[in-house]
Computed example of a mutant assay.
Amino acid sequence: MSADEQPIASVWTRPRRQREQLSREQIVSEAVALLDAEGLEALSMRRLGTRLGAGATSLYRHVANKDELIELVVDEVYGELEVPAADEAAGWRSAAGRSGASLRSMALRHPWVASVLGQVGLAHLGPNVMRMSERMLAVFKSAGFAPDEADQAMSTLIAYVIGMATSEAAYLSLIARSGKSEQEFVKSLRTSQERLRLPEGQAVQHGKDPRQIREDNFDYGLQRVLDGLEARLRSTNGQ
């Protein structure tokens, strides 16, 4: 095999080390916990090693660098997704909507994930990412989209979900830094808006649970994306 034909190095192609005190699963689990608690900026091999009670050298026996660690943690949280099967065309919209809602929930549980998804190269996709992507792609194929367009439809849905979740996660992070509950934070916003006498469309909605407002706003956009995909499907099928 020539140098040009050498396989791309990836954490997924490296043999697992057996009978070691520290396992890859332990490393990944602790890395996810660190990211959830302190964000991407806090992640380093040294910091992770300290949390595990081991030196960074022990970690390097399992992962070559931080980039490989990112591949592992992204794949780990992707395993939380729930992508229902759509065995017939009539069920594709419900399945796609539930998949999008599950992706949003995962991204809000792990706010760091949206910012690193673009760093995971296609050649380095892990088993969970591949499995969930294939299941979601099957939903759009079952709807009647041609293979190439099914991939585009799936990417459109994912782009909407990740965009909304990134904005929502930033908002929730701001609330967390304020030390207030979401209800308290929104109440303080309402007070400020009343003082500024903002137009009704720009003011925070009164009398509604702020979490429910976020759910409704996300679902509204999700349904409009699905409306567009459904209209496209009908036009290509001559309906």
Rank of each mutant, 00 (worst) to 15 (best):
M136T: 01
R195V: 15
S105C: 04
E182P: 10
N217C: 09
E71H: 14
L108C: 01
P210Y: 05
L40K: 10
G201T: 12
L108D: 03
V32M: 02
E88S: 10
D4Y: 10
E149K: 04
L117M: 06
S167A: 14
G238Q: 12
V186K: 01
A3S: 11
R24Q: 11
E194D: 15
Q223D: 08
G97C: 11
E30W: 06
Q18C: 09
R177P: 05
R46G: 06
N237G: 15
E230M: 13
A203V: 12
L72Y: 11
R46F: 13
Q223N: 08
R104P: 00
E80Y: 02
S105W: 00
K141W: 00
G238W: 13
R19W: 05
R211I: 14
M1T: 10
P199T: 03
S10W: 11
S44R: 12
N128V: 12
R232E: 11
V32F: 02
F218V: 13
A31K: 00
E82A: 15
A95E: 00
S99A: 09
W112D: 04
R93M: 07
F145L: 00
P15D: 06
V32P: 06
T236W: 15
R51V: 09
L229Q: 08
P199K: 09
R19Y: 06
D227C: 04
R214M: 09
G238T: 14
R234L: 09
V28R: 07
S10L: 11
A31Y: 07
